[in-house]
Nucleic acid binder design. Structure first.
Lengths: 121, 121
DNA sequence: TTATCCGTACTATTACATATAGTACAATCA
DNA sequence: TGATTGTACTATATGTAATAGTACGGATAA
């Protein structure tokens, strides 16, 4: 279900958080769908259950999943309540990326064109 | 000259790399301009010279500055030669950010409009 | 030449985050 | 009940970050 790069400098739990977020955002994982149990996923990926739990805890804290003891962990249907802070962070990252693309010599028109291919409609 | 967040989870040398890159990209630091000596900057920021050197080494490796023993460290005038790898990384980050903005409910037209305000012309 | 400043390269040490291993407990459900 | 779930906790090993200190060669001005 997930692929990890154990040689990466990025922590395993952080890679897991990003991977799962991508699957939620791209709607591969659907609302209220159950995630693998921490012990199961740990077995599949041959890593420690504590590492999985740390990733799930982080995802729950960020509002992407919810966990119920005795039942399991599930995709949170609704978007996290307060988006403003997260959206501001994204805009800052976006600004930084665009600045660097310009610095590296990519023409503004090409940037716009490239972005439109990444958006619907 | 620089501001650091010692309480941040991000390593000091990494914060330094990002700060200086921003100053280069935004052209606050101009080509061939001399950066503070490792010992001087370490003194100003009250951190260890080794940490500054690690940041400078990374910036040189990424092609943003060049260092000459006995003279100093300077802003590299030209853009790093091979941009393709860096550009690919930026496009991947961009794609991820756009996906998340969409997921959080920002309309595509608003995204385009917002981006155009961040680009020249 | 000498003194000084520059980047650079080491070693050693401390502190912290990551990841693992193991145990335990309460809630859920067949 | 028994099995599975999330959760919490301790302990340990490992790697990275950061510090402290020392040292060397190149560049430059006195």
């Amino acid at each position: 279900m997930f692929e990890l790069d154990l040689r990466s400098r990025a922590p395993i739990y952080e890679q897991l958080v990003e991977k799962i977020k991508e699957l939620i955002i791209s709607k591969v994982l659907k609302p209220d769908e159950q995630l693998p149990a921490v012990r199961v996923l740990a077995g599949e990926l041959t890593i420690n259950p504590n590492t999985i739990q740390k990733a799930y805890r982080e995802l729950e804290h960020q509002g992407y999943i919810y966990s119920i003891p005795g039942k399991g962990s599930f995709i949170r249907p609704a978007v996290p309540e307060d988006n403003t802070a997260r959206m501001q962070t994204l805009e800052n990252e976006l600004s930084r990326i665009l600045s660097e693309m310009l610095y590296l010599g990519m023409p503004p028109r090409n940037i716009i064109t490239r972005i439109k291919t990444l958006l619907p409609e």
